[in-house]
Design a protein around this nucleic acid. Structure first.
Length: 812
RNA sequence: GGGCGCGUAGCUCAGCGGGAGAGCGCCCGCUUCACACGCGGGAGGUCGCUGGUUCGAUCCCAGCCGCGCCCACCA
């Protein structure tokens, strides 16, 4: 064993061994309790980034911990086909050849995507392996593989039969560049500079005009009404009358609707059901026509009259000019507001009326709301329960059809007779008229529609498999917070709808790792840091440790120091193991912890065990790492290892046996966090019958619980001695440990007795002041008072030992 | 517009009602036979600001100032 721990080689060796020996594999086994986590399936085209690495490590710690506790652990790997994202990647590839997907045609394009994936996709699972993630790689699934497609079709048909899926002509978020509809969650609101125009709409009876404010002049060509608030005195007389939309020369009614904000603009609003979501709603309720003046490509449509074919900017300029000429343009001023943009390509969203497939969400949401309210699913940290509930309680219909080529094609066939056949498999003829000529729906499903089924479909659903019966429902789902609605909420809804059971009991929302400068980590900004590069430089254990340390807050700036700390911990463990192993001897008696430092370290190990368990149970992994760091460095190395050295060197059999026993316990606690070093060290321990990865997590051991603070006096004495050169009297085992640890021959004494005395004087003064305060004595809890008294006594003892002169009783 | 989170040592962050902490960095001393990816010691904080509650507040409450995130149909 070399003095410097080198993770290269060691880690890959263990990763291979663990996987080949089948320790990652999970199969139904009624004799054991299952523990299940489904890895959020990364995009097939993706590569491991910091978020994946953090999330993977987190889940791996939980999986490894439960594996050691005897659970039958299934950690499910796989990929998401990622509709738009993947299609874009391959389209860019095509663009290099000067082609578009339309040059290939649908089938050839799909073939091309599969080819691309064959060559360049599916690399992340290898990267997860390199991080030490103990996923059951045999079970890798893809949202587009055969069985999974059946699950998606089954769910769609199921919802259709329940009346929760329907096709409707409604206003949607349309991305003119992607040429597809988007769900509300795929729209990102960004601040933009616009102009707000105040336009005079003449009244049809010639009695004047009504001023209307708008930022989208071109859409006035599609106006079908003017609305005012029913209680707005300014316009009360106008309701029921008609106005003329200037550029369109159309007579439209003036209606009253409470959704109009009297405070905003002029208090009168133009109603354009074809191009504004609120107007659309108002329009439907008032039975207004729906005119479309903007086409799917974002330009003015044929119905825009003389403006047809123009871009919106051109139309806006021309209309503004015309209005000004007619004296109908009252004002035009700059206006800053948030406008929806396509999350994928950044193009401004065009609200348009198109024929799309929808899921009615309220009925699905109801049981999913109950599940969280009742705590059958819990979010960690707990505040995300509220976030989830707020969204779910005001949920709106979900637009699930996408005008893309890459994805699950919607299982609906149309017949010339007008029939609409919804079927899991392709029907051979029309059920209504018998016509064999059927046309399949062109649209594919939103990627997240299939993701919602991940916990179920990966276990074999729609088939009633053994896996499904044994592993469903699972235990934990861990994700970043931006995915709570897109994925977590929908998995919960789908699970409840299909099985009547939540898919997991805990949802962990982990932190976002930011670049060191506080910006988002992003490839395009050049702020990304490659976790695999960290693995190369520091080792997987160190990288895991650093990531866990950064997992606590909501946002954490990446700090390489955290990874370095992990590397130092691994190295420390390695070296203290060398010390113990080099002195352990061969045949070993049963450990009989007797010496004070032995009882003490076993108490500390058990206390740490309890703290780690507590932290893991509430998913506070950063806290757990901190406990283990201090256990290893402070307790195990700085005190215990130093204390036993003389006995170890002297060949004390008890010291050796107990040291091995204590080291073993330390390795067990460390394994979920630093699996590779700990397994490597474990393999050097004499007479191992099994791998650390499958060794049982330590049972509580309170034999020495009372000894947890046994070294306090020695520690204090050592501190005082090192600072001042003065020896606080100790005897027996305490003295023995003191001498083993302080090495007086090396000590440089700077004569700091006075400084030490002064420090103690101040502490004593503080205690005395507190203990003289009657309110404190009356109201503070007794244990607090007792603790203060104990401190006072201790400080006074120390002062005496140091031989401090009685300082002047300083007042104030 | 609504909601949430954060502001603690030079840096990255813990702590969240009774002595201000860790790691890195910095200074001093150590080639101590496990480890210089080490050991020991030290310097360095009006715990964003202002009020309030309390015997006592970094910690609880209110307001304010900065930073960030999520949600959102005021044209």
């Amino acid at each position: 064993m070399e003095p410097l721990y080198k993770p290269e080689g060691v880690e890959e060796r263990w990763q291979r061994a663990w996987e080949e020996e089948g320790h990652y594999a999970a199969d139904p086994d009624p004799a054991r309790r299952p523990y299940v986590i489904a890895l959020p399936p990364p995009n097939v085209t993706g590569e491991l980034h910091m978020g994946h690495a953090l999330n993977g490590t987190l889940q791996d710690v939980l999986i490894r911990w439960h594996r050691m506790r005897g659970f039958n652990c299934l950690w499910q790997p796989g990929y998401d086909h990622a509709g738009i994202a993947t299609q874009n990647v391959v389209e860019k590839e095509l663009a290099k050849e000067g082609k578009t997907r339309h040059d290939l045609g649908r089938e050839a394009f799909e073939e091309r995507v599969w080819q691309w994936l064959e060559t360049y996709g599916r690399v992340i699972m290898h990267q997860f392996r390199r991080l030490g993630c103990s996923l059951d790689y045999r079970r890798e699934r893809f949202t587009m593989d055969e069985g999974y497609v059946r699950a998606v079709m089954r769910f769609f048909v199921h919802l259709y039969k329940r009346g929760l899926v329907y096709r409707d002509n409604r206003i949607v978020n349309w991305c003119p560049r992607c040429a597809s509809a988007l769900s509300d969650l795929e729209v990102e609101h960004l601040e933009v500079e616009d102009t707000v125009y105040t336009v005079r709409y003449p009244l049809a009876d010639g009695s004047g005009f009504v001023p209307v404010a708008t930022v989208r002049l071109p859409t006035m060509l599609g106006d079908v009404a003017v609305a005012v608030h029913p209680d707005d005195d300014r316009y009360r007389g106008l309701v029921g009358k008609e106005a003329i939309v200037p550029a369109a020369e159309r007579r439209v009614p003036i209606i009253a609707d409470a959704r109009v904000d009297r405070e905003f603009g002029t208090g009168a609003v133009k109603i354009t059901p074809g191009h504004d979501p609120l107007d659309f709603e108002i329009g439907r309720e008032h039975g207004l026509p729906e005119l479309t003046v903007i086409a799917l490509d974002g330009r003015m449509s044929g119905e825009a009259g003389e403006y047809a074919g123009l871009s919106q900017e051109e139309a806006q300029a021309r209309i503004a000019e015309a209005l000004a000429r007619q004296g109908l343009l009252e004002r035009a001023e700059p206006y800053r507001h948030a406008v929806g943009h396509c999350e994928r390509c950044g193009t401004r969203i065009e609200p348009l009326i198109t024929l799309q497939w929808w899921v009615e969400m309220e009925e699905l949401a109801r049981p999913a709301i109950e599940a969280v309210r009742q705590g059958r699913v819990r979010f960690w940290p707990a505040r995300f329960n509220r976030v989830y509930l707020d969204w779910m309680e005001s949920i709106r219909p979900w637009c699930i059809s996408r005008q893309l080529w890459w994805g699950h094609r919607i299982p609906v066939w149309y017949c010339a007779c007008g029939a609409e056949i919804v079927s899991e498999t392709e029907p051979d003829r029309c059920q209504a008229c018998g016509d064999p000529e059927l046309r399949r729906e062109e649209d594919v499903l939103d990627t997240w529609f299939s993701s919602a089924l991940w916990p179920l479909a990966t276990l074999g659903w729609p088939d009633e498999t053994e896996d499904l019966a044994y592993f469903y429902p699972g235990d934990v789902s861990s994700t970043a917070r931006e995915i709570i609605f897109l994925w977590e909420a929908r998995m919960i809804m789908a699970g409840l709808e299909i099985r009547g059971e939540v898919p997991f009991r805990h949802v962990i929302i982990h932190s976002t790792v930011l670049a060191p400068d506080g910006r988002r980590m992003s490839k395009s900004l050049g702020t990304g840091i490659d976790p695999l590069e960290l693995v190369e430089r520091y080792g997987a254990d160190a990288t895991r440790y650093g990531l866990l340390k950064m997992s606590s807050a909501q946002d954490v700036r990446f700090s390489e120091g955290a990874i370095e700390e992990g590397r130092r911990l691994a190295n420390k463990l390695w070296n203290v193991s060398r010390l113990i192993l080099a002195n352990a001897g061969e045949a070993l008696p049963q450990a009989r912890p007797q010496a004070l430092e032995e009882r003490w370290i076993l108490a500390r190990l058990d206390r740490a065990r309890a703290e780690v368990e507590e932290a893991l149970e509430s998913f506070e992994l950063a806290r757990a790492t901190s406990v283990l760091y201090h256990l290893t460095f402070d307790d195990f190395c700085d005190w215990y290892a130093e204390a036993i050295k003389p006995r170890l060197y002297a060949g004390d059999a008890d010291a050796r046996a107990t040291a091995l026993f204590a080291l073993e316990r330390l390795l067990l606690l460390l394994h979920p966090f630093l699996p590779h070093v700990s397994e490597e060290v474990w393999s050097h321990l004499p007479a191992r019958e099994r791998r650390l990865i499958v060794s049982p997590w330590p049972e509580p051991d309170d034999r020495f619980a009372a000894e947890g603070d046994a070294l306090e006096r020695v520690k204090e004495a050592a501190t005082i001695f090192r600072r001042s050169g003065v020896r606080v009297p100790l005897d027996g085992e305490e003295l023995r440990i003191f001498e083993a640890v302080v090495r007086p021959q090396r000590l440089r004494v700077d004569g700091k007795v006075e400084v030490e005395c002064e420090r103690l004087r101040k502490e004593i003064e503080r205690c005395q002041r507190l203990l003289a305060n009657e309110s404190f004595l009356r109201k503070a809890p007794p244990e607090v008072v007792a603790a203060e008294r104990a401190k006072l006594a201790r400080y006074q003892r120390e002062r005496e030992a140091l031989g401090c002169a009685d300082g002047p009783p300083t007042s104030g």
